[in-house]
Amino acid sequence: MSKADYVYAVLLEEIRTAQIPGGTALRAAAVAARLGVSVTPVREALRRLENDRLVRYQAHHGATVVDLGDAALEEFYGVRAALEGLGARLAAARITPAELDGLRALHESMAESLERGESAGLGELSRDFHLRIADIGGPAFLGQQARAAHNSFPVPPGASLWLRPAPAARQLAAHAAVLRALEEADADAAERVMTAHIRDAGTWRRTHLSGHSDLG
C-alpha cells in the first residue's frame, strides 16, 4: 500500500462512518501531521475522495467533506436496491456450496449476536453479507460498484438500524429469506427479497433518522 493509498483508506473509513462529519474542512497539513505522512500523499488522497464525490474543493476553503441531505439518502438506497437486487439475481445462478456455507455461518453469527444483545458490530457484518453476495453475483463489475455505493453515504455508528431490536430482527429475517432464495437458485425471489430488504432499510432510516447526523 502506498502512502496515498493509506491516507485514502483512513479518510474513506472515517468519512463513511461519519467520524468526520459532513461540512468538515480537511486541511492537508493537519491530516499529514495526524497520519505521519507528507502533504503530497494527502493531496492525492483528497483528489481521489473528490472523484468519489465525498469531498469538494471550494475557493479559499480547500477540501470539505460533502454534507449530504435527504434527497441523497433516498438516492443512496435506490441505487443500492438496484445494484444489490441484480447482484442477488446473478448470485442465485453462480453461488457455490462453499460460498453458501460462508453466508450461512455469517448469518448465524449475526443471529446469535442479536439474541445476546450484542448489536454494536452488526452493521458492519450486514455490510459484509451484502457485499459478499454482490461480489458473487458480479465479480467483474457489479461487486465493485456495490462497494462504491456503500461507501458513498456516511452512516454514523449510532444511526444504524441494527442497534434497534425490532428493525434489526426484521432485517435479519430478510437476510434469511435471501439465503433461502440463493439455496434454491431462485433468481426472481433473490432479486425481489434483496430489493425490498434494502428499500425497507431506507424507509426506516428516512422515517426515524432523517436530518439527525449527530446520532453517531
Rank of each mutant, 00 (worst) to 15 (best):
S38C: 07
A25S: 06
L11E: 13
E112K: 03
R80T: 04
E44F: 06
P97M: 05
A9F: 11
A111M: 06
A33T: 10
M110A: 03
V37I: 02
G22R: 13
V55P: 04
L100V: 13
V65E: 08
A92P: 06
Q58S: 05
G22D: 10
H61D: 05
A18I: 10
S2N: 15
A63W: 02
N51C: 03
R53L: 14
L49D: 12
R34Y: 02
E44P: 04
L11H: 12
E74I: 06
L26V: 00
L103N: 13
V65S: 09
A30I: 04
Y6C: 01
Y6H: 13
Y77G: 01
G22F: 04
L46T: 04
V66P: 11
L12A: 12
G87D: 14
P21A: 05
M1I: 06
R89K: 11
S2P: 10
E84R: 03
H60Y: 14
D101H: 15
Y77Q: 09
T24Y: 01
Y57S: 05
V10K: 13
L86D: 14
A29F: 01
T17Y: 11
Y8D: 09
S38Y: 10
A4I: 06
S38V: 05
R80D: 05
L54F: 02
L86Q: 12
G23S: 03
A91K: 11
S2V: 01
I95W: 09
Q19I: 04
R27G: 09
E74M: 04
L114V: 03
V66E: 14
A98Q: 13
A82E: 15
T96P: 11
A71Y: 04
A111T: 01
D70M: 00
E99V: 02
L103S: 15
V10Y: 14
H107K: 08
R27F: 02
H61T: 09
E108W: 07
F76R: 12
T40L: 06
E99P: 08
G117V: 03
E108N: 13
R27P: 00
G69M: 07
M1F: 13
G85C: 09
V65Q: 09
L26Q: 01
H61G: 00
A92Q: 11
A33I: 02
T24F: 00
L103D: 08
P97L: 12
A9H: 11
V39E: 15
K3H: 10
G22S: 08
S113D: 13
A88P: 07
A29P: 02
V37Q: 14
E115H: 07
G62H: 03
M1K: 14
A72F: 08
L100G: 04
V10H: 15
M110F: 01
L49E: 14
A71Q: 06
R48W: 11
E112L: 01
R47D: 03
E14M: 12
V55D: 07
A32H: 02
P21W: 08
A111D: 04
R43T: 01
R27H: 05
L100F: 02
E74Q: 12
G23L: 00
A45V: 02
Y8I: 03
V39R: 15
G102N: 13
L83S: 07
A59R: 15
G62K: 00
A72P: 03
I95F: 10
D101A: 09
M110P: 00
L86S: 14
R89A: 11
Y57R: 15
G102R: 14
L83Q: 12
L46Q: 07
K3L: 13
L46I: 02
L46H: 06
A29Y: 06
L46Y: 05
E74C: 06
A91S: 09
V42I: 10
D101S: 11
S119D: 10
T96M: 14
